[in-house]
Amino acid sequence: MVTCPAYEQPFALVVDDEPLILMDAVSILEDAGFQMLEAGRAAQALRLLGQHHDRVKLLFSDVNVPGDMDGFALAREVARRWPSITIVVASGQTKPGTGDLPDGATFISKPFSAQVVYHHVRKTMPEHTQPEPLKI
């Protein structure tokens, strides 16, 4: 398998306040070839994106995160401020309604498998920004 040097690998930001789900999502996306950033709240995610938005290619967020902004609001804000970032939102409790997700974002029901995540990321993320392991 061909791998990119770490400095060329795209970053993904995972936002979830449940440690086990966060670890699972991080592991799935690391296996897909991403370097990782993690946040437990939307406000923390926005701070990280403010610092690293030029390298982050994927936002993977839970809907139900603590704080003033849920995952849907986070997705809309990220799409508004950084439209080149691919957005995947997941939940086991809530389904998106009209206007919840920004154009081009994807919703995944929890629990999710690595194959489901890979499928949705491949489908929504421009091929030139995907890490090599996803192209196989």
Rank of each mutant, 00 (worst) to 15 (best):
R122M: 02
G92M: 01
D24C: 05
I85M: 06
P126H: 11
C4Y: 14
M69S: 09
L74A: 14
G40P: 07
G67N: 14
A39C: 09
S27H: 14
V15Q: 12
A25C: 13
V26N: 11
Y118W: 14
T98L: 10
A75D: 06
A114T: 01
G97P: 02
A42V: 12
D24I: 05
I85P: 04
L37K: 12
D17Y: 12
A39V: 11
F72P: 03
H119G: 00
P5S: 05
T124Y: 04
T86C: 12
A12L: 09
F107L: 03
R55D: 05
D54R: 02
F112Q: 02
G99T: 01
H53R: 04
T94P: 00
M23Q: 15
G40W: 12
V88G: 03
V2W: 13
E18F: 08
T124L: 07
H52N: 09
F72G: 06
R80M: 09
A6Y: 13
A45S: 11
F34K: 03
Q51F: 05
V15N: 11
V56C: 03
V116E: 00
A6P: 09
M23W: 12
L29N: 07
H120C: 04
M69N: 08
Q44L: 11
Q9D: 06
H119I: 00
M69Y: 13
E18A: 09
Q51R: 08
M36A: 14
P19L: 13
L37N: 08
A75H: 06
Q35W: 11
V65L: 09
K95T: 06
D68A: 15
V78I: 07
G67L: 14
G92S: 00
A43N: 10
P5L: 04
G92N: 00
G99R: 01
R41Q: 15
V116H: 00
P5N: 05
D54I: 00
T94W: 05
R47P: 01
M36S: 15
L48K: 15
W82D: 03
M1P: 05
L20I: 09
A12T: 08
G99H: 02
A73F: 12
E18R: 11
V63Y: 03
V121I: 10
K123N: 14
D62A: 13
L20C: 05
G50D: 06
L48T: 13
F34E: 03
V117K: 02
E38H: 07
G71V: 07
F107M: 04
P111W: 01
F112T: 00
Q51P: 03
R80V: 06
S84P: 01
D70V: 08
I85F: 10
L59I: 10
V63R: 03
